[in-house]
Design a protein around this nucleic acid. Sequence first.
DNA 1: GATGAATGAGTATTCATTCAT
DNA 2: GATGAATGAATACTCATTCAT
Lengths: 204, 204, 204, 204
Amino acid sequence: MKKGEKRKQDLLKIAYDMFLSHGYENTSVDEIIEKAQIAKGTYYHYFKSKEQMLEEVIEMMIEREAEAAKQIIEMDIPVPQKIAGILSSVKPAEAEMPIEDALFHPENALMHNKVRKKLIDVLTPLLSEVVREGTEKGIFECDNIPERVRMLLVISNGTFNEGTFSERDITVFIDTAEKILGAEKGTMSFIYGLIDKSDMETDE
Amino acid sequence: MKKGEKRKQDLLKIAYDMFLSHGYENTSVDEIIEKAQIAKGTYYHYFKSKEQMLEEVIEMMIEREAEAAKQIIEMDIPVPQKIAGILSSVKPAEAEMPIEDALFHPENALMHNKVRKKLIDVLTPLLSEVVREGTEKGIFECDNIPERVRMLLVISNGTFNEGTFSERDITVFIDTAEKILGAEKGTMSFIYGLIDKSDMETDE
Amino acid sequence: MKKGEKRKQDLLKIAYDMFLSHGYENTSVDEIIEKAQIAKGTYYHYFKSKEQMLEEVIEMMIEREAEAAKQIIEMDIPVPQKIAGILSSVKPAEAEMPIEDALFHPENALMHNKVRKKLIDVLTPLLSEVVREGTEKGIFECDNIPERVRMLLVISNGTFNEGTFSERDITVFIDTAEKILGAEKGTMSFIYGLIDKSDMETDE
Amino acid sequence: MKKGEKRKQDLLKIAYDMFLSHGYENTSVDEIIEKAQIAKGTYYHYFKSKEQMLEEVIEMMIEREAEAAKQIIEMDIPVPQKIAGILSSVKPAEAEMPIEDALFHPENALMHNKVRKKLIDVLTPLLSEVVREGTEKGIFECDNIPERVRMLLVISNGTFNEGTFSERDITVFIDTAEKILGAEKGTMSFIYGLIDKSDMETDE
DNA sequence: GATGAATGAGTATTCATTCAT
DNA sequence: GATGAATGAATACTCATTCAT
């Protein structure tokens, strides 16, 4: 890695944190270079514009998520577990929560949207492969796999990533997932234990 | 309606158009008052801030959509038709497309997100009522109706409102909808004819 | 005159001085507002852009010059004197010299050029009228008056407004002017006394 | 010519083109080195500053023009033809027009002015020599030759180099030229055929 | 109710130049 | 000779908001 490349990565990491915690629009180039302790010119030496930097930051995030998904796929675990693992990677991992939480603040709408869309695009083929594996093993029975997978990702994202959700949401999600993939009832129920319930509403 | 109230409504309508066509962030107060032919002071006489105006604009949009949904509910048509009608109101009606199209440009992310979320919140109870009616008539068979309904809205929005979709997406959507609500196969297949296929990819 | 109009005139006057003494490109908006003791926003309340302000400043200069020329035309003096008077208004009046001098620094090229061109365009018809008066009185004898007048203005400007000139330049200019207009030798020789010789090189 | 010298000439040529087509002020060092495929440091190895480079570019242009003038002088053609040839070299040759055209855009004011002034300074003695040759042959009859010559150059430049001109402008120019140099009527009328009339307005 | 002059902190971006390697 | 990372002052312009009239 060249000298300049290293610094660029550092800059991306700094911006990544700042974009997440304050939103892209609310993070000024001045603030970034101040935190990075570099000159204005240095910033523009590495990035053509602030927007181009955003693209690179997003790419970086997507790559991370995709990488995690690929690792799950290669693990020696039952197919349903793989699916659950990847589905939960659409939503921020528990560990990262504090920072990623910012992704749902309205000020992050732009970045949030871009990431969500791209992430679904990237994960769909990976997850489809897993589902196909499942159909071969007789665990699932369905056609139009990529469309079904995309739908699962959309549901997972739309249900668990936007504000709060209830225990019933999980139950319904599991039921729906099984039906969408043509699995036997109960196949995916273990998912219940995986959901980060810190965001969950308690029934009143 | 008082004279002042009338003017406020006009302002909201103007802002609504501008927010949609250029995005909230890219529409300045200056541009709004220029189009409305009023003075700066007048604007701030009616709205505490630009953000407050956004809230009112969004409220206005939601009310419209909710109103449309209520009318559908009261129509004398089969339950599945009602559901399809409301589901398709999550997505812009064909007629409005040109203007609402702007809703999916990244620059509208903020407004788009706010509207989407609120709309789902507003439509969920309305649609739930319809579904319950369906269960009583034996058309559907399911529990946790509000959660299931919300999931349908999330899917509909996530599938048909974000860029392009294919014929298979519709097929899978119909299949999933039937399963989520516990309907017999074919119950909802008429939906296929309702989808605005101008956004649809053709299979190659 | 409205309140705002007065302030705009003040701003133009301030900018006029600064553009002349430091050049348009070298005068920043910051410097202008600092000198005018107004806020950034106030500046842009009156002028759409810095360039638009330049246009207005130039217009202001042109109007001044044209006004002076018109006054000369209406004076009750011999025609040749009128011509000499207007010709010398292409070049800065002696009194204004210290400030206008800046017009010939390279940094003022842009403004200088714009002013020169427009001034010639504005003065040509005025001066043409005077020359026509002269032909009627038998002082001049020539056709294509506007073209000849423009040529005189071009010469006057090109000779006396760009750096230094010698006594001989004046002599030749007078001779040429007489010939261009078809005047008798000596008709215009009084011009010699009008030229501001502070810019004149001494013969060595 | 050393290797380094060659590269410098290439750089000058690239800059020359860029300055002409976009203006000196609007051409950044970054753009120059990008086009020249060299590094920042290399640029500053050859030129102390951007301004110094401009001087060298201008010098280059002047030398070209002067060289052309000298060749005309040494040609075996009548004196009036020589004069016409040199006069027309103050203005861009037809062939070069497309590129030099940029010289009259306001953004090029600085460079335009510098070139014009220097060119007149350089051509004055050359043309004066030719005129003196003419007086010896009895074609012209005048004193103060350098001043008269300079005036001709000023007129030629001011009339034909700044935007458009009409047929009458040419007629008047020829008449004036003859009178300035003390030539017989008709001596210079052949000039009419030399003017690039693509810039000429048509009489209506 | 209505006006519009005034504010000033904030923004992204440019660019000629330096210098250690 | 040649590189390109680093600099940082400078720039024009935006915009939501206030307030005296």
